[in-house]
């Protein structure tokens, strides 16, 4: 078996279209994850146990169970409660929810990294809680964890092929369709692998650049 460069060349435009959907899902999913993660983090810090305990349990459960099963759950269960979303929208919600559990941990680390004195200074200045969060704590907590968030962005990008299981037309699903039409899986699947590898390496380089720029170290997820 040899690589058929013609087949590879003709598969590329269709795959790139799929890749566009992949990037779309990733960007929308990450926006959702960034937002929801903050909600979980703040809920977990709540002094009210009926807020903080469920939030902590929810984050833990999401992190400990497969994204694929979560995707199925949303895809098959939501409609029976009258919530009808397109596969794409379901996919965005699924990856966004899944990764919000991870971003929540990252935010938590960032907030815990803000020195106690900052909170005390905010109290001494008689700032209201919202002001304290918005103008004192978060501006210091977020920048150091940007590289860690970047790593989860890459991880999410690499997880989007899972959405092919509910027929979202992202790059993997596109490749599967191409393969089943032509009975040649070699070229489309290899191209998908190379596209992921290339983009991940570029993104990882960006994260390292951000680490240097911000002067922080982050562990890869």
């Amino acid at each position: 078996m040899r690589i058929d460069w013609g087949a590879a060349w003709s598969a590329l435009p269709v795959l790139l279209q799929g890749l566009l959907v992949t990037l779309q899902v990733t960007l929308l999913g990450m926006s959702l994850a960034l937002l929801l993660g903050l909600v979980w983090t703040l809920s977990r810090r709540s002094p009210r146990r009926w807020i903080s305990y469920p939030a902590a349990g929810f984050v833990e459960a999401i992190r400990s169970t497969p994204l694929l099963v979560q995707v199925y759950f949303l895809f098959y269960v939501l409609p029976s409660y009258g919530i009808r979303l397109s596969p794409l929208a379901t996919g965005v919600v699924a990856v966004g929810l899944h990764y919000s559990a991870y971003t929540s941990e990252v935010y938590r680390a960032g907030i815990e990294g803000v020195p106690r004195g900052q909170w005390e200074a905010a109290i001494a200045l008689n700032l209201r809680p919202l002001q304290t969060w918005m103008s004192i704590i978060l501006p210091q907590a977020i920048p150091p964890v940007i590289p860690a968030l970047g790593n989860y962005f890459i991880a999410m990008f690499k997880d989007t092929p899972i959405l092919s299981a509910i027929a979202v037309l992202e790059v993997m699903q596109t490749a599967k369709i191409l393969g089943s039409e032509t009975f040649r899986y070699l070229e489309p699947f290899t191209l998908v692998g190379l596209l992921f590898l290339g983009l991940s390496l570029v993104a990882a380089a960006l994260v390292r650049w951000a680490e240097r720029k911000l002067g922080v170290r982050s562990a890869s997820p």
Binding site: F196, L197, S220
Partner: peptide, 24 residues
């Protein structure tokens, strides 16, 4: 390390399952 970390688990799985048989 870079290849396996740089691509998706599912893509790797599909590749080995669908593409390797083409190489016998």
């Amino acid at each position: 390390i870079e290849v396996f970390r740089g691509t998706s688990a599912l893509v790797q799985l599909y590749w080995v399952f669908y593409v390797l048989p083409f190489f016998g």
